[in-house]
Design a binder for these strands. Sequence first.
DNA 1: CGCGGCGTTGAACACGGTCAATTCTTGTGG
DNA 2: CCACAAGAATTGACCGTGTTCAACGCCGCG
Lengths: 252, 252
Amino acid sequence: MTEVQGSDAFARAAGQPVGGKLERLFKVLKPDLRRAMERIWHHETVAEDATLVEEGEEARKIGYVVDGLLAMVKELPDGRRHIIGLLTPGDLFGRAFNGPFGYRIVALTDTDVMTADRSKFEEILSQSHEAERLFLLTVLDELDSAREWVMVLGGAKVVERLASFLLILCRHKLREDCRMPRRGEPPLSLHLHLSRTTIAQYLGATPESLSRALHKLARDGLIRINTPYQIDLLDLGGLVETAGSALLVRDL
Amino acid sequence: MTEVQGSDAFARAAGQPVGGKLERLFKVLKPDLRRAMERIWHHETVAEDATLVEEGEEARKIGYVVDGLLAMVKELPDGRRHIIGLLTPGDLFGRAFNGPFGYRIVALTDTDVMTADRSKFEEILSQSHEAERLFLLTVLDELDSAREWVMVLGGAKVVERLASFLLILCRHKLREDCRMPRRGEPPLSLHLHLSRTTIAQYLGATPESLSRALHKLARDGLIRINTPYQIDLLDLGGLVETAGSALLVRDL
DNA sequence: CGCGGCGTTGAACACGGTCAATTCTTGTGG
DNA sequence: CCACAAGAATTGACCGTGTTCAACGCCGCG
């Protein structure tokens, strides 16, 4: 992991459109605490496939995803691999106030993260009720996402899971773009940064069945597969329908 | 819902071995806040199958399960039903600081709950950083459970899910009993309060395959089915093995 | 005593997993 | 820029697991 220290590194990274949770966390801090908070964050670059945290490890750092994609991974004794959650730009991780990791964290792509010493981070939150409240809210969101995913995985059929997955990605994308897709516009296009195998591990399926599901959606005209990593969503309504509303409604 | 007001009702219910999260929450409050907190809790009795909260509803109350069992349920448009989580004695629910419910909450058995006005509850936590910290910790636990369940559901095979489910129940029971099973003792015996159909909905399977899985475990000598609701766990090691370590370790 | 739920069991079939072969993509070196 | 090799994705055949639909047994209740 390449490491860059200092608050200017932070300023650079935080200047991203990401901003999100971390920046909001800063904003509610009183000036002196805020300075302390800014000082503890370091910028790091993580190469694809690197492991950030090992399973069972006691958390020493808090992390914030600036750009890229991380996964919480659990290895099964029989060698299978399971992705129990994704960490996308704007997400915090690191089990603040909590016990050791029950899973490994690996980088699915080259990733920029900000990290901070965990105990210092906790220390600061302990001095600002308001900041800790904000942190609590992020945990509540994570909880909702996890429950949503329980929903999706419980639902069975791979095509359904896949449809849900695509819609969730789409939801992220829409949120980034800060606008609805204009109609008539070249249909909503997704760029997957993940291999089929990885997606399959996330969906609790094999690459083969994932591929079949993907091409089934294509046959049915719901999506178009331009390249394995470039997919157009042609019919959101249809996707929602095949997802079987496994999604806990919330935003579009 | 039968309702009983007043702090003596609470005292009665809180006298239970449950105590747990709520009592701890009380303990960290300064006397005046603590009195305020005690005053807002009411005892209620909920009949089996009753709905406590409708999906999409804005939360008005915070709840605490004293005795019985609740489930977070999501109905699919095609009529299927999905249980995304259970609430057991000692659990808090009610989306404090959060948006509307994305699921329904129903009573799987007759249940005793304590409830409090949500805004008052939040108000009090807002005045006690320490109490809110405690609340944060409960949310973090919930998050771990949800992730654990993602793990289990992603893992496929119904027998595996079932084994995991039994072990989780067993974990609860051991925690209540506050002791390890003495060896030689009549093997660890579980009383299920749930119908096969309900369990199946939780495991993301049908009653039929659940039944088959159950009897397969029995054939293999891992459990004994005394009555449909009374099951002995004969071989914990074997169960752990067939669960395939889908469980994020933590305690036994 | 008969009805109605629920759990269990059986048979047929669909879906997803496995193994193996084939085609695409992509990155590298000529 | 093209050829080639390695790794991915896809496709096909086959099989195990789970679902579906239907029937049966058990039990509690009217």
